[in-house]
Write a protein that binds this DNA or RNA. Structure first.
Lengths: 184, 184
DNA sequence: ACCTGAACACCGTTCAAGT
DNA sequence: ACCTGAACACCGTTCAAGT
């Protein structure tokens, strides 16, 4: 059982990180985050040995929501619609701050690492939606499901690096979805 | 007219940067680059006030080649083929090292800045190929040409952040091209 | 068991002194 | 006119000392 002050520090660090990442992107100074949380730098490193671990811990809740949403969409909508709606949420999530898409795309995620589990599960849920859309004939069977998720993250990357207008996400995801759709 | 030693230092810096970027990505330490070039740090800053300026100077030749290639392809091939071939070269170029795609995508490029001219011209040449493919009916008129270039850079980003197999570039560009093609 | 904060290393950036 | 390299600032990371 963790000590009460350790638990409180952990939460303060997550709050401070949330704020800092939203302000200046995922490269925000860890030292600043520790100071804003009112803890020593060493405490931050004890709780989160790497920056990615901090990012993933912060994303834990929203990733779990994305995983759950995949199940709901699969049950309630047509496969093509469900996939489109989920990818939109996934891209929106990955575009929340600069650098996040790269963390989510990173191939070096260890499925056994508890801090990466939420990320790995969300990916699996997304791939399942692609597979379902292939089974129903909406998405071409030649497509690699992983490629579809990668392209949704790539769209999120564009949203951060070259923002051009309100409906950019809709336009770019439209291109991706049209690109993986089965011929008529 | 620049002094002979200034000219030589500039070339040494470009050589050293080429090497460093290829080794460790576009975030390579500028200090290391100056040392490898055998010059003081101040000399690097004199020649290239920002990292982007160094990157763009390094890319100048290849960007000019891409611009020229757009003209050749437009003259010798069908619009759809020309576009596909050019985007492949563009994505391959942007994937040469990590972080380069972001520099090329950056919206803050001043068209009047001589160091950005090659980049702006390559973009214009690419957009012209998209427009030509729209005129011939191969690409849907609803597509924003800039979106097509952005997606090619996004593909390059995936190639660096989540590399998955030899023909990943072909697969992902295939999705983008299929996604912007006019309905039958 | 956990925390603090000083210490160290590394790197971007500037600028006084030199040629 | 251009170069050098020391100096400063900033930040990631570690660790001895404290509770």
């Amino acid at each position: 059982v963790p000590r009460a002050d350790a638990q409180r520090n952990r939460e303060r660090l997550l709050d401070a990180a949330q704020q800092a990442f939203a302000d200046v992107g995922v490269t925000a100074a860890l030292d600043d985050i520790a100071r804003a949380a009112g803890v020593g730098a060493g405490t931050l490193y004890r709780h989160f040995p790497t920056r990615d671990r901090l990012v993933l811990a912060l994303m834990r809740t929203s990733l779990d929501e994305l995983t759950a949403r995949a199940g709901t969409l699969a049950a309630e909508r047509q496969p093509a619609e469900a996939l489109a709606a989920w990818l939109d949420g996934y891209a929106a999530h990955a575009a929340r701050f600069r650098g996040l898409a790269a963390t989510l795309a990173s191939t070096g995620l260890d499925p056994d690492d508890p801090s990466a589990v939420a990320c790995v599960e969300a990916h699996a849920a997304g791939r399942a939606l692609v597979t379902a859309a292939q089974a129903s004939g909406d998405v071409s069977p030649a497509v690699d499901p992983q490629d579809v998720l990668d392209m949704a993250l790539a769209v999120a990357w564009v949203l951060r690096e070259a923002p051009r207008g309100e409906d950019q996400r809709r336009r770019l995801l439209g291109v991706v979805l049209a690109g993986v759709t089965s011929g008529p």
